[in-house]
């Protein structure tokens, strides 16, 4: 018995050391750093208690990026899911050119987000990009979608949905294929309408997938910010800046690492909340399988 413990620990050791060195250790260090000041020049870092958190509460940029990120998540997650379900339902039909259709939906998933950003930057170019070309055909004026504070965040959301919907589609496809055809046959005998079938059979049975996808999409809305670097740099006026992008700016542009750590603690807290929420939901709502 003791020997297997030693065996097991030896086998686990290398993976655990690396894993903890770049996940748990930095997470704890981040919390400690958030209670200290940033070392600058000859001034060493000192313990400052909650001073960084007080600064957080009066930081308007922080409030704005947090709000941006919440709207960004609150819209991209349900929209991506709605489109992903539609895609899966469409592709699940035996329709003409199904191969091409499925490929078109899924292709953005394989592209680097940086490449996607370049493609859409070109697409959005005022006057020149395809969107303005099409608007021009209808006599509409030029629009600088990513140059205006009130449209830029939405323009970024479109990119995110375009990139992610096809990825989520495949989880729904798998789930659809596992639904028993006899349920649909029964519904057809009852003369249920298409919408009723979706609302009463398909959608409830897809619930575990929807929860899984929601949590992943929510994490991604805080984690994937590559396109912001290329397309807007968080601008204009922080209108498209998200929490992780602000962390990058504070920590690696202004080199205020203590405040960067404080912001990271907020991000960690949000992810923790998501994890707890997932647990809670999975326990209570998902009893189909």
């Amino acid at each position: 018995m003791r020997r297997t413990t030693i065996y097991a620990w030896l086998m686990l050791l290398p993976a655990m050391v690396l894993l903890m060195a770049f996940t748990h250790y930095p997470a704890i260090r981040t919390i400690i750093a958030s209670l200290h000041s940033t070392a600058r020049g000859h001034r060493a870092s000192v313990f400052v208690g909650l001073a960084n958190y007080e600064r957080l509460l009066s930081d308007d940029v922080f409030k704005q990026v947090l709000w941006n990120n919440l709207i960004y998540g609150a819209l991209t997650v349900p929209v991506s899911i709605a489109i992903a379900i539609s895609m899966a339902l469409l592709v699940n039909y035996k329709l003409r050119g199904r191969g091409f259709v499925r490929m078109a939906y899924f292709t953005p998933t394989v592209l680097p987000l940086i490449a996607v950003a370049n493609i859409w930057l070109f697409f959005y170019t005022p006057g020149f990009g395809l969107i303005d070309q099409i608007r021009g055909m209808f006599g509409l004026a030029q629009q600088n979608w990513i140059g205006q504070p009130d449209t830029v965040l939405y323009a970024m959301m479109v990119v995110t949905v375009w990139k992610e919907a096809g990825f989520f589609m495949i989880f729904y496809l798998a789930a659809l294929q596992s639904i028993s055809p006899s349920l649909y046959e029964a519904a057809a005998i009852e003369g249920a309408s298409r919408w009723t079938v979706f609302r009463r059979i398909t959608f409830p049975l897809l619930m575990p997938t929807t929860l899984f996808v929601s949590v992943n999409a929510a994490i991604n809305s805080f984690r994937l910010i590559d396109h912001i670097f290329v397309m807007t740099g968080g601008g204009p006026n922080n209108a498209s800046s998200l929490l992780l992008y602000y962390i990058y700016q504070v920590a690696f542009r202004e080199w205020d690492t203590a405040y960067g750590a404080t912001l990271t603690v907020v991000l960690l807290a949000i992810l923790l909340l998501l994890a707890v929420g997932q647990f809670f939901f999975f326990d209570r709502k998902v009893h189909y399988k």
Partner: peptide, 13 residues
């Protein structure tokens, strides 16, 4: 849940 991607500052250190 907590990927190394978001712990930029400390991993850099």
């Amino acid at each position: 849940m907590i990927m190394p991607d978001i712990l930029l500052v400390e991993n850099y250190t």
